[in-house]
C-alpha cells in the first residue's frame, strides 16, 4: 500500500448532507399556491367579488388560526411558509362563493386547529386539512354548502345545481339538454362556464397548474393520471359518460392538488398509485350509488385514513433482501 497523501485545502471533510438542494417547505408551498393562482383568479373573474371575499376570509382565518396556535404552544411561528395560506386557498376553492362570511371562517379554523394542529402541525396531520374543513362545513350547513351560483348569467343571487347534481336528480338526458348538445357540454366543462365550487370549474387552468407542479417535480404525474383514469374507466364500465365524469365536480382539483398533498399520501410512487386508484374508485362509488352527487372530498379523506396501511403494505424491499 502506498502512502496516501492528502493535500491540505483540496479535500474537505464534513458531516452529511453533502448535496444540498434549494427546495424548502416554504418554496414548495408557495409554488403550489402559484399553481393554483390562475384557477383562483378565474373564479374571481367568473363569480365576482363574493368569490374574492370568501377567498380572503378563508386565507386570513387560516393564517390567524395557525399564528394563534403556534404562539400559544410556544412553537416557532411558521405562517410565512405558505402552508396555512394553501390550506385556506384550497378550502376556498372547495366551497361555493355565495356562503355567508362565518362559514369559511369556521371551516378554516377547524381545518387548521383540529385537522392540523391537534395532530402536531405540518407534517403530522393524517387528513388533508382543507378537505376536513370542507367536510365539516358540508355537515354543518348542508343547504348553504350545496347552493351554487350559476355562471351562465351574471345576475346576483341566481343559483343552480352543479352538473353532477343535475345528473343525480334529473338524469343524463336533462344535463345534456341544459347545455344544448354534448360538445357544448364538454367545452363548458373544460373551460369552466358552469356552476360549482369556486375552484373546481376551470378544468383547463387546474390542469395547467398541475402540469407546472409535475414539471417542477413536486408531484408525481401518476397520481392525477391514475385517479382521473380510474374514474373514467369505471364510469365507462357502469355505462355513464366518462368524459363528463372526468371533467366535472372537484375531480381535477382533487386529483392534482389534494390527492398529491405530500403529508397525507403514501411515500412510494407505487403506494401513491394505489392511493389514487382507491380515491378514484371511491369517487365513482359515491357519485353513482351514494347519497351525495359528488364524492371526491370523502374519497380522498377515506384514502388518507388508509395511507399508513398502504405504506406498510408496499414497503420497498431492502436491497439484497429475500422475501
Amino acid at each position: 500500500m502506498g502512502e496516501v497523501k492528502i493535500e491540505v485545502g483540496k479535500l474537505s471533510v464534513s458531516a452529511s448532507p453533502h448535496i444540498r438542494c434549494d427546495e424548502s417547505i416554504a418554496k414548495i408551498m408557495w409554488m403550489v399556491n402559484l399553481a393554483l393562482a390562475p384557477a383562483a383568479l378565474f373564479s374571481i373573474y367568473r363569480f365576482g367579488l363574493s368569490a374574492l371575499y370568501t377567498m380572503v376570509i378563508c386565507i386570513v382565518a387560516a393564517i390567524v388560526t395557525e399564528y394563534a396556535i403556534q404562539k400559544w404552544q410556544g412553537k416557532t411561528i411558521t405562517v410565512s411558509d405558505g402552508s396555512a395560506f394553501l390550506t385556506g386557498l384550497l378550502l376556498a376553492m372547495n366551497i361555493p362563493s355565495t356562503v355567508p362570511w362565518y362559514m369559511p371562517l369556521f371551516g378554516s379554523a377547524v381545518a387548521i386547529a383540529v385537522a392540523k394542529h391537534t395532530m402536531g402541525g405540518l407534517g403530522f396531520n393524517i387528513f388533508n386539512p382543507a378537505l376536513v374543513g370542507r367536510a365539516v362545513l358540508l355537515a354543518s350547513w348542508p343547504v348553504a354548502m350545496t347552493t351554487w351560483p350559476t355562471m351562465a348569467s351574471k345576475l346576483d343571487g341566481v343559483t343552480s345545481a352543479t352538473p353532477l347534481g343535475i345528473l343525480k336528480l334529473q338524469g343524463y338526458a336533462k344535463l345534456v339538454e341544459i347545455f344544448g348538445d354534448k360538445m357544448t357540454m364538454y367545452k363548458s366543462l373544460f373551460f369552466g362556464s358552469r356552476s360549482g365550487s369556486m375552484g373546481e370549474t376551470a378544468a383547463l387552468l387546474l390542469i395547467l397548474g398541475g402540469i407546472f407542479l409535475i414539471y417542477r417535480g413536486y408531484i408525481n404525474w401518476q397520481v392525477p393520471v391514475v385517479m382521473i383514469g380510474t374514474v373514467g374507466v369505471l364510469t365507462a364500465v357502469f355505462g355513464q359518460d366518462p368524459i363528463m365524469h372526468m371533467m366535472s365536480g372537484g375531480l381535477i382539483l382533487g386529483a392534482f392538488f389534494m390527492a398529491t398533498d405530500m403529508v397525507t399520501i403514501p411515500i412510494t410512487v407505487k403506494g401513491q398509485m394505489v392511493f389514487a386508484a382507491g380515491a378514484g374508485a371511491l369517487t365513482v362509488l359515491i357519485r353513482l350509488l351514494g347519497g351525495y352527487p359528488e364524492g371526491v372530498c370523502y374519497a380522498i379523506l377515506l384514502m388518507n385514513a388508509v395511507t399508513p396501511l398502504i405504506d406498510l403494505w408496499l414497503k420497498p424491499k431492502k436491497f439484497g433482501a429475500r422475501r
Partner: peptide, 15 residues
Amino acid sequence: YNGPLILILAPGAFM
C-alpha cells in the same frame, strides 16, 4: 345565529 349542524351530529361530539 345559524349554528354548525355538525355539533349536533356524531362527528361534532367526537371533536
